[in-house]
Computed example of a mutant assay.
Amino acid sequence: MDNPEFDIAITGAGPVGSALALLLARHAPDPGRIALIGKHFQDDTEAGGLPVPDNSPDPRSLAMNHGSRMLLEQLNAWPNKAASIETVHVSQRGRLGRTLIRHDEMGVPRLGSVVAYPDLVAVLHEALAASGVTLIEAPYVRTLAARQAHLNAAGRDIVSALAVQADGHQPDGLQREYNQHAVLATVRASQPMARWAYERFTDQGPLALLPHPQGGDLYGVVWCCAPDHAEALRRLDDAAFSAALTATFGDRLGALSSLGLRHIFPLSLHAGPLLVNACTIAIGNAAQTLHPVAGQGLNLGLRDAVQLSQALAPWLCRPRQDPRPVLEDFARRRRHDRWLTAGVTDFLPRVFSTRNLLVEHASGASLLALDLLPALRKPLARHLLQGLRT
């Protein structure tokens, strides 16, 4: 049997994989025996695959809930620029009913924050450089064997006692295609509402406007709609796109003016098994990819990382022991939070886009009930804030 070079090898150096490496480094007797394998460590400007022109607001905005921000602050990995969300306004286009979720009602300083993707990755990698974790830059990784975590990272053979997949996804598990694409854009509002975020449901999918970390009058747009409509929106000039967005969103923020590039990507649900084999576990995007409604994907992945680091802390002191019982227990403990979050983010975009008048009116009535009855609203808001704790 090969002698492991590392105790744990993590593939995927995005926010979830990087946060896990930082968490494990705090528990490990020798952080150097934790390997983080990723595509970019030196130049993080291209880490998300979407280059952004100079002086243009970055459209890759991430909504981080209160629990995620607390975690990253504890890891000294919170970006300098962030836009706070204190109120979330939820509505349905063309139907009555809306609800407001406020931070003071939940007893927190803010419901969440919005950061730019490259800023978050850069500060995580800066913290990793000082953590003692071994950083391995490789454009691709292949699994060669399952008896140990035997990997090939761009030609380099790596043997680890345990592997964590934090990037890509598995072919097995639940999959659903939404027949929706998301349009990412940045806009300027003529009448901005400080620290307000908006989720507006349309018959083609949800439309979110999030306060942008690069300016008080800027908003990050995530517009989910049919693929052909998304492509048409991407090709519009700024004036035509601004007019279409204002017509769909309404005049709550005044006139909306498009800035910079727009990008589109397809939306789907994938939720596979956490336990890949006896010595490999999947977390984050490798375990589940969710619809972006309510911005729960990254927050769920960070909860994966926290609980996995807690589960592996005792094992790191005895890495020669069989890791499978630890990994099986972790997978069991994560089941309820994963499936509840996936269920909520799967249900919302589908029920609001049925184009069935009865269902649409019932959905509007549900929003009104949430607004009038805190006993209904608070459990949902609490889950979106911090997930289901076990």
Rank of each mutant, 00 (worst) to 15 (best):
M1T: 14
N3D: 12
E5Q: 15
A9E: 01
T11A: 15
G14Y: 01
P15D: 07
V16F: 05
A19M: 07
L20F: 05
P29E: 09
D30G: 03
A35R: 02
G38Q: 01
K39C: 06
H40P: 05
G48C: 02
G48N: 03
G49F: 09
G49A: 09
S56R: 12
P59T: 05
Q74N: 15
N76T: 13
W78S: 13
P79F: 06
A82G: 10
A83K: 00
S84D: 11
I85M: 15
E86K: 15
V90S: 02
V90W: 02
Q92S: 13
R93E: 11
R95Q: 15
L96Q: 14
H103I: 00
E105F: 08
M106P: 02
G112E: 05
Y117Q: 10
A122L: 04
L124F: 05
H125F: 10
H125Q: 09
E126Y: 07
S131G: 11
V133R: 01
L135S: 10
R142W: 12
L144G: 06
A146N: 13
Q148C: 14
L151D: 07
N152L: 13
A153R: 03
A154T: 10
L162I: 04
G168A: 08
M193N: 11
W196P: 00
Y198G: 08
F201S: 05
G205E: 03
P206V: 08
P206D: 05
L209A: 00
H212G: 10
P213G: 07
P213L: 04
Q214G: 12
V221Q: 09
V222N: 03
C225L: 13
P227N: 12
L236S: 12
D238L: 03
A240Q: 14
F241A: 02
S242W: 08
S242M: 07
R262D: 03
S268L: 07
L269Q: 11
A271C: 15
G272C: 08
I281H: 01
A287P: 04
V293C: 04
L298I: 14
L300F: 00
L300T: 04
R303V: 00
Q307H: 14
A311P: 06
A313Q: 08
A313M: 06
P314M: 07
L316T: 08
R320H: 15
E328D: 14
D337S: 06
A342P: 00
D346P: 02
P349W: 00
V351Q: 12
S353F: 01
R355N: 13
L357H: 12
L367W: 04
L367M: 03
L370W: 12
L370R: 01
D371C: 02
L372G: 07
K378F: 06
K378M: 12
H383W: 06
H383E: 05
